[in-house]
Amino acid sequence: MSFTPDIRVFCCHYTSQQAIAEGLAGLKNDGFPPNATIERLLCSGKLQVSTILKAFEDGADGVCVVGCPVNECHNLMGSQRAAHRVLAVRKALNELGVEGERIEMFHLPRGFHPEFVEAVKQLDERTRGMGPSPFNGGTAK
């Protein structure tokens, strides 16, 4: 049975410049999964654990967080903080018996680049392999 996952992308102002410049139509031409929605943040360090969990509550099957390279964050420590929060969510998902791999942190260069699209495609493909989120009636593998 085909399954189209609900992918939520949280990305910082700087790593989403491509998304903003091209618009959704342009991204689609680049191969950006149409089932992924982008929420742009001033900095990935602004992303709270509760916001990520809310995404899962709202039906996300996978969550992709994109921030600056570890030691090159525009706001110094923002992407490192985001990575720590992603790990906290992973741990909590595992404790609930749900695959922690449903969330991933990507550290990508700022500006225009194909890696942004690839990161979301990677998370999309991984999530398709896992199936629907157990919070949405799926079964953890």
């Binding site: 509760s50 969990l53 809310k54 509550e57 909590a92 609930l96 018996g97 157990p134 919070f135």
Partner: peptide, 18 residues
Amino acid sequence: REVEILASLLRLGASKQG
């Protein structure tokens, strides 16, 4: 902040139990 997180996790845990 931790209350908000735990409440969300408890709701998710319940959702998983249907």
